[in-house]
């Protein structure tokens, strides 16, 4: 019996790899099983960052051609390794690549997989909590058969380390195989741009902004939060910002975890676009504004005062 964690990298280990390692560590301790990690990439430079999770060993499959995700090779490596280690629980990340990786491994191993978990724990077996119905309902899932897999939603768990040392690194070579899927190109979006519909946090501005010259006020908050910038129809119609930023009935429907509406009255046409958001914050100087009927947390106040304060506070607290 052992726990294996898939350590996702993009050059360096991704934050979600540490999150998965921590969750896997907790499970391993609860189940009294050893924890192993698997790294596939160019070269594992920061094994020391894996200290504090109780990880005994990390198997590092290193090769220049392994830098980019290649489903076929990545999957067969984990498939072989899991069999070799007799892994009972495999933990991955529910990132865009991680979900595909986990699903492929689960199919090869013919085991169950619970994707996109918010929480996993051990209670006489593996338990997981995950959103279903697009987050409208939370499901508590018991995994009956092991081996089994879970993938953790990124940015949900807070990484905490204990005093355990960094894992031993066992370097392994690349298995010989020619993948059928060829990576032709990798394009990374310039840092700082977040696509509105996929953003985890959206900051939107409306008529209350007063004019296009004031966008930097909101942009500063976006930068502090790593958020995408949205706008109400009124702001778009006034020509203050391009239509691609429009949130609403005739614009985009966004589904972030956090939506901050600044100077937006919250008419139904706008609501239709922000409705799927998990938490809505409204900032408006008019206490009668409808946004306060449709938000979770409201601040009545001048956005030119509140927004900079908020950006500053977030930078302070989240630094």
């Amino acid at each position: 019996m052992s726990v294996l964690v898939l350590l996702e990298q993009r050059g360096a280990l991704k934050a979600c790899a540490h999150e998965a390692a921590m969750v896997a560590g907790t499970l391993a301790r609860a189940a009294g099983a050893p924890l192993y990690g698997v790294y596939i990439g160019k070269s594992l430079e920061e094994a020391s960052s894996l200290a504090g999770f109780g990880m005994q060993k990390v198997f590092a499959y290193e090769h220049d051609s392994l830098g980019h995700f290649c489903g076929e090779i990545y999957t067969s490596i984990v498939n072989e390794l899991a069999k070799e280690l007799g892994s009972t629980v495999i933990v991955g990340s529910a990132s865009a690549l991680g979900k595909e990786w986990c699903a492929s491994v689960a199919a090869r191993l013919d085991v169950e997989l619970v994707q996109d978990c918010l929480e996993v724990w051990w209670n006489n077996g593996l338990m997981a909590r995950k959103p279903v119905y697009a987050g409208k309902v939370l499901a508590e899932v018991r995994v009956i058969n092991t081996p089994a897999m879970v993938s953790m939603r990124p940015n949900v768990v807070k990484v905490e380390r204990d005093a355990s040392p960094a894992p031993e690194v066992e370097k392994r070579g690349m298995p010989s195989s020619t993948p059928r899927v060829v990576v032709k190109d990798v394009a990374l979006a310039p840092a700082g741009t977040v696509e509105l519909t996929e953003a985890k946090i959206v900051v939107s501005g409306g008529r209350g902004l007063g004019g296009p010259e004031h966008w930097p006020v909101l942009q500063a908050l976006c930068d502090a939060l790593g958020a995408a910038l949205g706008a109400s129809r009124a702001a778009v119609d006034a020509g203050w910002i391009h239509h691609s930023h429009q949130v609403g009935q005739t614009g985009k429907v966004v589904s972030p975890d956090l939506y901050i509406a600044c100077g937006i009255s919250g008419a139904i046409q706008h609501q239709a676009g922000m409705r799927p958001a998990k938490i809505i914050v409204g900032i408006n100087k008019d206490p009668q504004a409808n946004i306060f009927n449709v938000c979770d947390y409201g601040i009545v106040g001048d956005l030119f005062e509140i927004v900079p304060l908020l950006a500053e506070e977030i930078r302070k607290v989240c630094a």
Binding site: R207, A234, D237, A238, S265, A267, I268, Q269
Partner: peptide, 10 residues
């Protein structure tokens, strides 16, 4: 009501 409300605001 919606359209005139938006118009008055504009």
């Amino acid at each position: 009501m919606t359209m005139i409300s938006d118009g008055l605001k504009s």
